[in-house]
Design a binder for these strands. Structure first.
Lengths: 107, 107
DNA sequence: TTAATTTGATACCATTTGGTATCGCATCAA
DNA sequence: TTGATGCGATACCAAATGGTATCAAATTAA
């Protein structure tokens, strides 16, 4: 139970492996074993990343027999989105340029 | 010159002091000295944070005499927003599935 | 029951990170 | 010119981070 969810959420997303895990879990719920198959590291390392993601409120775990399925909590992104919203007014001035930048990035 | 702008951007936002700096610079362009007055740490520490923010593409620096004004680069958020956009479709898919289920239930 | 599978937990290690202290270089003011 | 001011750079330190190796517990399969 960590108090500062915003900090934990930003911290969770600051690692490329964890961002990859988030994307994988957006596709399918997976066990640690299945996730470990997708990376070049040990199960213990993946487990640590999952703990950080859990502290950030980004994933939840559901036990099923001896397996534990990790699933994405889409609402976990809320702290990040909320923080970014602060710049809405600031962005109004630059919104056109920003939109253009994002569109370019897509392609 | 850092190659992975997405990673550097997420990393830059992963520290609470740096997020505070970003908010301050959204209000006013400031020198390191002015920023240091806002925090309980040395100028060298603030400078390091500014370097990380610069690596993340979130700020730019403009020299004016012996002062160097740091300003927010609003387009710097683009990598984060772009990454988050991936989950818009995640939301849409789930929403579509939910709608379908409701429609079926009606009949 | 016995053995294999799936996982959690911990000790340990190298590197990164966030911080200070300190030096030297420009620039402005006297 | 002589200080004072604003800044960058570096050496150094404690703590956090990302990883491994290893052990123990619980569930499933033989």
């Amino acid at each position: 139970m960590t108090p500062d969810l915003t900090q934990n959420c930003f911290r969770a997303l600051a690692d490329p492996t964890r961002r990859d895990i988030v994307r994988l879990l957006a596709e399918t719920n997976m066990t640690i074993g299945q996730l470990t198959d997708q990376f070049d590291m040990t199960r213990a390392a993946v487990k640590k990343h999952l703990t950080v993601l859990s502290d950030g409120g980004l994933i939840t775990v559901t036990a099923k027999g001896r397996e534990r399925f990790n699933s994405l909590n889409p609402q976990g992104m809320a702290p990040v989105l909320s923080w970014l919203e602060y710049f809405d007014t600031y962005w109004d001035d630059h919104l056109a340029a920003l939109k253009t930048a994002i569109e370019k990035d897509k392609k």
